[in-house]
């Protein structure tokens, strides 16, 4: 049965949260991981929707360090008060 964008968003969020401070994931890394995890139950379009949900809700943010990544919101090291 096809996974909903919400279910995929939760799985992506867990993956990003678990890797926080250790590894940064690009959106495509998450898409690939979801396809590996759920097989035919997900497609690229639903993964895209899931990322949109994560970012629009503020659970994840886009960051840029040479390339663009999805991370848990945090105070970056370079930031000044």
């Amino acid at each position: 049965m096809a996974k909903t964008p919400e279910e995929i968003a939760d799985a992506m969020h867990k993956m990003v949260k678990d890797a926080f401070g250790v590894k940064k994931y690009k959106p495509m890394d998450l898409n690939k991981a979801m396809r590996e995890l759920f097989g035919d139950e997900v497609d690229k379009k639903t993964c895209k929707e899931a990322i949109k949900l994560l970012v629009n809700s503020g659970r994840c943010v886009y960051t840029y360090f040479g390339g663009s990544f999805l991370e848990i919101p945090h105070r970056e090291g370079a930031a000044n008060d």
Partner: peptide, 20 residues
């Protein structure tokens, strides 16, 4: 210093973070 996280809600581009 390069800032990598600042932006507007929902967008991943358009803002380039810079700190002294």
């Amino acid at each position: 210093k390069h800032g990598g996280i600042v932006g507007v809600m929902g967008y991943g581009g358009g803002v380039i973070g810079r700190y002294s």
